[in-house]
Amino acid sequence: MHRGTTIPTGQKNNIEQLQELLHATPHFSTFPPMDYSWLKDALFYAVAVAMVAGAALTVFVRNVLHSAVALIGTFFGTAVLYFLLSAEFIAVAQVMVYIGGVMVFIVFAILLTSHLGEKNLRTSLARKIAAAVLSLVFVASAVVLLRNSGVSSLTETDNFASLSSIGTRLLSPEQDGFLLPFEAISLLLLISLIGAASIARIPEEDLPYAERTAENTTEKTEEK
């Protein structure tokens, strides 16, 4: 280093010293930056295979409870996929709402209705074949449309929806904000919860059923 001959001020001196140091150390300059995209790709394909396997299990397994458990696996795979697509908040919402809320609903409904999901209803082979043909036709036509749509020629942009931008847009009353849909959806949640409670309630005309159960319990207590 040629201190004093080239750099007049102390401030500049420090910066240039640092720069020289950076260039001198092989750790920063000579090693090429590692490319981790293959890792992302490998993770994507692993998650994709797991999700398709989970979806196949969900529809092919005969027991409804097993099917619900397979669906939980598929939802976890979807959350990982959302992380890979840099949508962290959606991934967390997926885990909390779908796995923590909806799947608990479903498992409770299965336990309440079908005796641990053991009673299964057989479908005829003709219906299975027709359904398989229909879904294969859908997938095939969608793939053909995808090939002809020009999606492949699009350049990849790494768009990223940050948590703060989602929060700001969700509650901003401006032109591009989502304040009104946000309020509408909270109202919809409230209404649907009230509706669900009133639908699942035992209605007035079914009261003999409730009385029957009440009589059964009183008889049992009398026997004791």
């Binding site: 999700m51 969900t58 409804v64 619900a68 299964n120 479908t123 299975k128 969608a142």
Partner: peptide
């Protein structure tokens, strides 16, 4: 698409109402 196709198959073959919802 594959997930949606699996869903179509499930909706058309399940006879249990909860299975259709799943």
């Amino acid at each position: 698409f594959l997930l949606f196709g699996a869903g179509i198959y499930g909706v058309l073959t399940r006879r249990n109402a909860i299975g259709i919802l799943i």
